[in-house]
Amino acid sequence: MKLLMVLMLAALPLHCYAGSGCPLLENVISKTINPQVSKTEYKELLQEFIDDNATTNAIDELKECFLNQTDETLSNVEVFMVISFSSYKLFKSPDQGQVGSSFLTDNAKATSEQAFSYIG
């Protein structure tokens, strides 16, 4: 029982602070990279976000870029995305404050403002 407690406590920071903060985005990125996912399946996944034929064509072309890559390239891209998702814990501390070097924190602030002004 004590061992279980220790394991759970050890898993807590890893489980909570790794990840992109958006499971849907992680799923979309994963399906973009995955060569087993066809263009049709990919478009179905993104259907609610597609408004017109121009966007459908753009999505098709994006998926085509990934389908044209070798398996080795795609597995390396996947490695990169895992690192990107995991990097979230570098940028945020448990109280949602920023941690890490000044380069990391300044960069995180800048990108956050830039991206969310674009979204909002």
Binding site: L12, G19, C22, S84, F85, L90
Partner: peptide, 20 residues
């Protein structure tokens, strides 16, 4: 605690990833 903590952690999208 785990549930609350993970809810909080997922409330905001990682800015570095958005930028990338």
């Amino acid at each position: 605690t785990l549930a609350l903590c993970c809810y909080q952690a997922n409330a905001e999208v990682c800015p570095a990833l958005v930028s990338e």
